[in-house]
Design a protein around this nucleic acid. Structure first.
Lengths: 154, 154
DNA sequence: TGGGATAACATGGGATTTCATGGGAAACAA
DNA sequence: TTGTTTCCCATGAAATCCCATGTTATCCCA
């Protein structure tokens, strides 16, 4: 599971260390790296490991092949994603266009979100974290165990 | 899995490099190349590796022998597909009629879509990608985990 | 429980390989 | 022949690998 938040430097070659906890979360499979793509919701990046992409593929393939929403999601997730593999020290090289989309300049903040994670400009993330806390406080009652929601049917 | 988008040049001989990530995705089998056919949905090409064709074959064979839809699919996919093998440098030679169908002129954009990929005219693809992003943003809620879709109350 | 030893992590820079691309020669077809 | 296709080699740019280093966290043992 991706948890916690860490900010690492981006060097002149565009390389940035992926937090060690994130790395151990995706290790084990044949692909030693992560998938990253621009969020279509705003100026940050979305990411995950092979397992997340497999989930997305399954979800998308459950949709009707000629559903416009399916084609848009395929394009915006799989078409936009990059496979970024780790070097010997656990770094990835962030492509310029991705760094640009997220407004990254020298530093990147990795935010663990369970099954996936996000990469933010540190300043933008600080602002967003503040409002997210307020929002979480207002909505804390929505936190329910999934099993509770399905008990009747299972 | 086919992911990410890349644009490569088509030279005077009709040769175009297949993105390295796509190549490694189809390597391993006896056929070192890809299958490509004109989309019956619009001016672009569809493609995939041996695994995709095997999947299509299985799906089609599950249909009734004289189902009109089956015959249309057989004709449009297996009948129209070409086997394009890689040269020593990972290029394929695009047949003229395929390039024409997709309006390719000097450059070709490969778009990874998970199990399959598409080949586009770069300009057409740029337009499509823009509208797809907007559409994906509006329809992201259609992405549901399959198990959740069967829950009572949803 | 202190404090030194050890390992893990993040970072920097140079060397090497891969990748995309171009063109020529040889095999083949019409 | 003439045009086409396949194979082979060359090249520049970009991505990747490899080694070195400081700093922090963890371990171990008295």
């Amino acid at each position: 599971m991706f948890v916690s938040t860490a900010t690492n430097g981006i060097d002149a070659k565009g390389r940035v260390s992926v937090p060690a906890g994130f790395r151990s979360n995706v290790s084990g499979g044949p692909f030693d790296g992560i998938y990253v793509w621009p969020s279509f919701d705003g100026p940050w990046l979305e990411g995950g490991g092979q397992a997340l992409m497999d989930d997305y593929l399954e979800m998308i393939e459950a949709m009707d092949p000629y559903d416009e929403a399916r084609q848009a999601l395929e394009q915006s997730i799989f078409g936009a994603a990059r496979t970024l593999s780790f070097d010997a020290n656990g770094r990835i090289t962030l492509p310029k266009d991705l760094a640009e989309h997220a407004g990254l300049d020298g530093r990147a903040t990795f935010v663990g979100l369970g099954r996936r994670f996000e990469i933010w400009n540190p300043d933008s993330h600080a602002r967003r974290a503040t409002s997210a806390r307020a929002f979480a406080k207002e909505n804390k009652l929505k936190l329910r165990r999934p099993s509770r929601m399905t008990e009747a049917g299972q």
